[in-house]
Design a protein around this nucleic acid. Structure first.
Length: 358
DNA sequence: AAAGCGGGGTA
DNA sequence: TACCCAGCTTT
């Protein structure tokens, strides 16, 4: 087994030197701030999806100080569409923490990096190895897959037992001399060769000693526990327009899309037509708004989240009586673009420009 | 240990 | 459809 582990490490480094053609803007980057940003953006996010966001962020907020000074609305606007918005919140918090308490210097010890909000074991190891060449193995989806296949780990990798085995193997196989290079190598290898589906075993340099391949279990590994169940929710967005102003508010409840914005939201057990919406939800609808104020009602918009499926209808009204709403911002329609909204709302906005509506 | 959190790509 | 992606935090 130790010789297999050495073969594994050497082969990945060799593959990285000779065959790894994957290019990313933050490769060879040494600024811990930029590495941090790239790693946060890439949590549960494909490189191709995060690339443009990274470029825009670096341009607008090139330093810890710049990010610490930014206002929340602008930063969330830049994050809009990327998902997992707690990442954005935590980055802002940590940037301000570092700026106010650490002279805007990013910590260089693994434990100190790990202690920062929004940074877990993967991200701490990535920053420690890439920026400071410390020998901490990254363990992400790629690494878990490559290791579990090559070493034939059949335990559930999302349970403590399997995690421990992967963790031990990762520590055993990391190259102590070039941990950054090695971490980069194994992730790129997992993304381009040892892929989740359709791995390129026929041209894989590890195939000679890959236990999963020998046992014909490549497609079965890594093993994971059962899947989650998805909850359906039905959102009715009441879009209220009054003298070229529109009502929006920030979502602050303990729910999805925290710190993004929305219109008046009324949730129901099922998706209602505009007409039944006004009759069935009358006690949730702000006073002074009635069916006779209806200008337009959209079809069904759907969005699949990791744990929920959102069904939404947009109902546009222009109340005849003046309405006031507590907790809402009234902003000019022309300023909508400054605020971050969930994808389902930006999609509706894009397809229904207000100038085209009656 | 399990749940919750986005959005998009791929077979 | 189902699965997964350079995961983390809270329950």
């Amino acid at each position: 087994m130790p010789e297999n582990s050495l073969f594994f490490t050497k082969t990945l480094l060799k593959w990285n030197r000779e065959s790894n053609t994957r290019m990313m803007p933050w490769k060879a980057e040494k600024d811990p701030y930029k590495i941090w940003l790239s790693e946060i953006i890439l949590q549960q996010t494909r490189v191709e999806q995060g690339m443009a966001y990274y470029q825009r962020f670096i341009l607008k907020y090139p330093t810890i100080r710049a990010l610490a000074m930014a206002n929340d609305t602008d930063v969330f606007k830049l994050w809009e569409g990327l998902g997992y918005y707690a990442r954005c919140r935590n980055m802002l918090f940590t940037a301000r923490f570092l700026y106010n308490n650490k002279k805007a210097v990013f910590p260089s010890r693994y434990e100190d990096i790990l202690a920062l909000k929004g940074i877990g074991t993967y991200t701490a190891a990535a920053i420690a190895s890439f920026a400071f060449n410390l020998a901490y193995p990254v363990i992400d989806g790629n690494v878990t897959r490559v290791i579990s296949r090559f070493f034939g780990v059949g335990e559930y990798v999302d349970l403590a037992i399997g995690k421990n085995i992967i963790n031990n193997l990762a520590h055993k196989t990391i190259d102590k001399k070039s941990p950054g290079k090695y971490n980069q190598a194994i992730m790129d290898f997992g993304a381009t060769v040892c892929k989740p589906v359709g791995p390129l075993c026929n041209q894989c340099p590890l195939s000679g000693k890959c236990l999963a391949l020998m046992d014909n279990r490549v497609a079965q590994l890594p093993r994971k526990r059962g899947k989650i169940r998805i909850r359906d929710r039905y959102f009715h967005f009441l879009v209220i327009i009054q003298k070229d102003q529109i009502f929006i508010r920030e979502r602050i409840a303990r729910d999805i899309w925290q710190h993004l914005h929305e219109f008046v939201l009324i949730e129901n057990g099922k998706l209602l037509s505009a007409k039944s919406f006004f009759s069935k939800c009358s006690n949730s609808i702000p006073t002074g708004i009635s069916y006779s104020d209806l200008i337009y009602s959209s079809g069904e918009y759907k969005q699949q989240l990791s744990h929920q499926c959102i069904h939404a209808r947009f109902i546009l009204v222009k109340p005849k009586k003046e309405v006031k709403l507590d907790g809402f911002l009234t902003i000019p329609i022309g300023s909508l673009h400054r605020y971050a909204f969930p994808r389902i709302i930006t999609k509706w906005l894009a397809e229904n420009p207000f100038y085209s509506l009656p």
